[in-house]
Amino acid sequence: MSKILIKIDGREFEASEGMTILQAAKEVGVEIPTLCYYEKLEPYGGCRLCTVEAEIRGRSKLVAACLYPVEKDLIVRTRTEKVDQIRKMLLELMLAHAPASRDLQAYAEEYGADKNRFQKESSFCIHCGLCVRYCAEIKKKEVITFVDRGTNREISFIPEIASQECENCKECFPLCPTEALQAAYVLTQALSFPSLQSVTE
């Protein structure tokens, strides 16, 4: 695979064609925060925490590092004032749902995010989709799905499949960046009261 010269935070690196900014940065030890990223899964671009500034041919734009492919003469800035401001706000928005999440709290400290800035709506879920995608892409079981849309979007276990598959797997639990218990809770509820599981509630 051919090599491309790129610049990350002022230092020059060689990256391979086809890599994303996030992969290239990881390889050379530059940290970019992520929540919905997991190397075994297709990149998703949902949390936007990996937003960085990418400059190409003199034009700068904000992009998601987990999706943006490296290209020749790309200049990446991972910690500009703008990038930090965006990350801080994103963390504050997510903390309104999962104030107790350790991952979120650690990042909040780094970016000075205030977990009480927004009205709390403790759903625990930040819709990173790791459980949904892991179950579909790796386990090929497709037990968990997103239902509904917009601000009503939720995750939901499909009871009929969950009752057969989940007991011996539960591999998605530790992936959850908010509360592994949340997944377990939704699952238990689905298994115990399948008839109450209305996907449109």
């Binding site: 579909a136 497709e142 968990i144 799905t145 239902v147 849309r149 939901s156 499909i158 996907v199």
Partner: peptide
């Protein structure tokens, strides 16, 4: 079934 449910819950036209 997951994909079917995803689509059935996403559009307003569908009712479960």
């Amino acid at each position: 079934f997951r994909q079917v449910m995803r689509i059935a819950t996403m559009y307003k036209t569908f009712s479960l």
